[in-house]
Amino acid sequence: MSGGMKQLDLRRFPGFFAITLACVAVLYAPLMVVAVYSVNESTSITRWGGFSLAWYADVFTGPESPKFQRAAMNSIIIAVLAGTGATIIATSAAVAMHRAGRFRAKTATFALINLPLMVPEVVTAVASLIFFTAIGFSGGIGTILLAHLTFCIPFAYLPIAARMQSISDSYEQAAMDLYATPREAFRLILLPLMRPGIFSGFLLAFIISLDDFLITNFVKGAGVETLPTAIFGAVKQGIKPNIMAISTLMLGVSVAFVTLSWLIGRSGQKTQ
C-alpha cells in the first residue's frame, strides 16, 4: 500500500503527541533541574560553578546532617511499621471481602476502607490533631504512626483486593479437595497467590507514608521531625543546595521503588 491512497488513521489526532511531550517536559523539568543543581560546586544556587558532590557529603556529614539523619530514620521506621501494619490489616480485610460470602456490613465496610481516600487530607489532619489532644496523647512517633497506619490501609488494600479479585476460589477448593485443611489452603495456596498484590500493597503504603507531610505536621508535636517536615522547615528559610541533594536522593529512592514494584507486578502476571 505504498504511495497511492493515504490511510486515514482514526487513532491519531494532530498535536496529541506534542502535548504529550510538553506534559512529560513539565513533569520532569523541575526534578531534572534540581538533580543538576545538586551537583553544583557553587554555594550560590543560581550560578553554575562546576561539578561537585560536596552537597551530598554535606547531607551526611555537614552541620545539619544529624537533624536530617534523625528525621530520615523516623520516616523510615514509621513507613516500615505503618506499611507493615496496614498491609496485614488490608490483607485480612481483602480475604473477608472476597471470601466470606455476603454479609450485612459489607457495603459499610467498603465505604469505611475507602474513607481515608475520600476525606480531604487537611480535614484528616485537623481531626487527628483534635482527637489525639482530646484523649491526651501528646504528639510524637506514636501519634504519627497511628495516623499513618490509618491512611495507609486503603492504599495497601487497593492492589491486594485487585489481586484477590483475579484469584479464583477454585484453587482453594482444589486444595481442600486434596485433603488440605482450611489453614493449609490459606498458607500453601491463597497466600502465595496473593503475594504480588501484598507486596505492591506494602510498597504503596510505604511510599504514601514516606510522602506524607500535612497530617504528620499536625500530629507530630514539637521536636519530632520526619524527613518531609524537616525539609519543609528548612525550605521555609530558603532553598539551600543540601536540600537539593536530599531531594535528589529521595527521587532516586522513589524511582528505585517504582521500578521494583513494576518488575514484581510483571513477574506476578507471568506466573498467572
Binding site: S92, T124, S128, I130
Partner: peptide
C-alpha cells in the same frame, strides 16, 4: 477478619471526624 480494619479506621478516623 474485619475487626482490625473497623477498629483502626473507626477509632483513628471516623471518631476523630465526628469529634471535629
Amino acid at each position: 477478619l474485619l475487626l482490625p480494619t473497623w477498629l483502626v479506621i473507626g477509632v483513628f478516623l471516623l471518631i476523630p471526624v465526628m469529634l471535629m
